[in-house]
Simulated assay, not measured.
Amino acid sequence: MPVHNRIAAFADDLTAWRRDLHAHPELGLEEHRTAAIVAEKLASWGIAVHTGLAVTGVVGSLKVGTSNRAIAIRADMDALPMEEANGFAHRSTTPGRMHACGHDGHTTMLLGAARYLAETKNFDGTVHFVFQPAEEGAGGGRMMVEEGLFDLFPADAVYGAHNDTSLPVGEMYVVAGPNSAASDRFTIHIDGRGGHAARPHMTIDPITIGAQIVMAYQTLISRRVDPADAAVLSITQFHAGSAGNVIPETAFINGTVRTMKPETQDLLEAQMGAIAKATAESQGAAVRFEYARGYPIVMNNPDATERAAAAAARLLDPARVHREKPLTLGGEDFAYMAQKVPGCFVRIGQRGADGVGAVPVHNPKYDFNDAILPLGASYWATLVEQELARS
Rank of each mutant, 00 (worst) to 15 (best):
V232W: 10
L233I: 14
S234T: 15
S234Q: 08
I235C: 02
T236Q: 04
T236W: 03
Q237G: 00
Q237I: 01
A240W: 01
A240Y: 05
A240D: 13
A240M: 10
G241L: 00
S242D: 13
A243C: 00
G244V: 05
N245H: 08
N245K: 04
N245T: 07
V246Y: 00
V246I: 15
P248S: 09
P248D: 03
P248G: 03
E249A: 13
A251H: 05
A251T: 08
F252I: 02
F252C: 02
I253T: 09
I253L: 15
N254C: 12
T256S: 13
T256D: 12
V257A: 04
V257W: 02
R258E: 04
R258L: 05
T259S: 13
K261Q: 15
K261W: 01
P262Y: 07
P262C: 14
T264N: 13
T264M: 07
T264S: 11
L267E: 07
L268E: 06
L268K: 06
L268N: 01
E269S: 05
Q271T: 06
Q271Y: 00
M272A: 06
M272P: 02
I275W: 05
I275G: 07
T279S: 07
T279P: 07
A280N: 10
E281D: 05
S282L: 14
S282K: 08
Q283E: 07
G284W: 03
G284C: 08
A285S: 09
A286C: 10
V287C: 13
R288N: 12
F289S: 07
E290K: 00
E290F: 00
Y291E: 14
A292R: 14
R293M: 08
R293W: 09
R293S: 05
G294E: 08
P296R: 08
I297T: 14
I297P: 01
I297L: 07
V298R: 09
V298L: 11
N300S: 11
N301A: 15
P302A: 10
P302G: 11
D303T: 11
D303E: 15
A304M: 02
A304R: 01
T305I: 05
E306A: 07
A309E: 06
A310Y: 04
A311V: 03
A312H: 04
A313N: 12
A313V: 04
R314L: 13
R314A: 14
L315T: 09
L315M: 12
L316K: 09
D317W: 08
D317F: 08
P318H: 10
P318F: 13
P318Q: 09
A319S: 10
R320W: 00
V321A: 05
R323K: 12
E324K: 14
E324F: 03
P326E: 05
P326Y: 06
L327D: 01
L327I: 15
T328V: 14
T328I: 15
L329F: 00
G330Y: 06
G330W: 09
G331L: 07
F334E: 01
F334Y: 12
A335F: 09
Y336E: 01
Y336I: 01
Y336L: 03
M337G: 01
M337S: 06
A338Y: 04
Q339A: 11
Q339T: 03
Q339E: 13
Q339K: 11
Q339S: 02
K340G: 00
C344A: 12
C344G: 09
F345E: 04
V346Q: 04
V346I: 14
I348K: 03
R351N: 12
R351K: 15
R351D: 03
